[in-house]
Amino acid sequence: MNVNLSKRLKAAYDMVSEGSVVADIGCDHAFLSIALVSSGKALSAFACDVNKGPLEKASKNIEAAGLSEKIHTVLSDGLIFLNEPVDSIVICGMGGSLIISILNNSLEKINAAHELILSPQSDTAKVRIWLRDHNFSLIKETAVTDAGKYYCVMRVVPSDKPSGWEVPEIPDEAFYYVMKYGPYLIAHPDSVFKEHLLKKEKEIRKILAQLDRLNPRYKELDEELKWVIIFMRDK
């Protein structure tokens, strides 16, 4: 079975460490698990989903790929019913608040893993702040545009001294915006991230042009615009 990963799933695939046992949370059709195991990058995988329908489709895809002995499906809300130890935990395609809920419900399991690969669809700042506050270090972020939408995929690891959440020469007053846009990407901007910032600048300017300066929203957006422009400066 040939698996064509979306750009976002390919970015997640690239971040998984070689030789890992992977938990693919919210696996949908298990395409990521199949790609990781069939290529030999992952030793085995647990394809987990809270819904029976997607999990049944995942099982059929896994069987068609001839990987039933190496990829096991688990009906589970997040990691709750996954009782086997894993090295890599991948969570893509969910809102940030849901990802945080999944992590909060399985703190012991995520701290026992070697790495988390996350790609929240919303509330990315909240996810980054949660990770920093729960002693995870940020190792890498990748920006991708997939089906016309912008996403960030990040790799974090448990740490006694969390690092990677600050950007040199960016003051503490920009903390929220650093968490919103991504400290690694700000420090190591790629072409996709730069294009995203350019679009955000245009978007914010358009909104500001329609707002009264006395509107509280104007001050908030004007502050964000200031930092977006600073983040766009060449490194």
Rank of each mutant, 00 (worst) to 15 (best):
T73F: 04
E195M: 11
A23K: 08
L214Y: 09
D234S: 14
A187Y: 11
S44G: 13
I80T: 15
H188R: 02
D212S: 13
S44L: 09
L9N: 04
S137Q: 09
M232I: 12
S38I: 01
R155N: 14
A47I: 04
L197N: 11
S106C: 06
S191F: 11
A174M: 11
R8L: 06
D172F: 12
Y176A: 13
A23P: 06
K149P: 00
V3Y: 01
E18D: 13
V178W: 07
I207L: 05
K149Y: 03
C48H: 03
Q210L: 13
I207M: 09
F136C: 00
Y151D: 02
Y218I: 08
L208C: 05
L118P: 11
M154W: 10
D77E: 15
R213M: 01
D24F: 06
F136I: 09
V16M: 05
K60A: 12
W227R: 03
P158D: 03
K180Y: 06
S68K: 15
N61G: 11
Y184D: 14
T73Y: 05
L208G: 08
K57G: 04
V153Q: 12
K200A: 06
Y151F: 13
V192Q: 11
N104E: 15
L131T: 12
R213F: 02
A58K: 01
K140M: 10
N83I: 03
F136V: 09
E173K: 14
L98K: 13
V22F: 10
I99Y: 02
S33C: 09
K41T: 05
A187D: 13
C27P: 05
A35I: 02
T145N: 09
E201W: 06
I99T: 07
A47C: 03
K202M: 15
L98Q: 13
M154T: 15
D87W: 00
V127D: 13
A147Y: 00
A30E: 07
S106Y: 07
I91Y: 06
D28E: 04
R217T: 05
F31L: 14
Y176I: 11
N135W: 08
V167Y: 04
A112K: 09
K206W: 08
L221T: 06
S159Y: 08
V228K: 13
M154G: 14
A45Q: 08
R217Y: 04
A65Q: 00
K41W: 02
N4T: 02
A47K: 01
E69R: 14
I170F: 09
A58S: 04
L9K: 09
V21A: 08
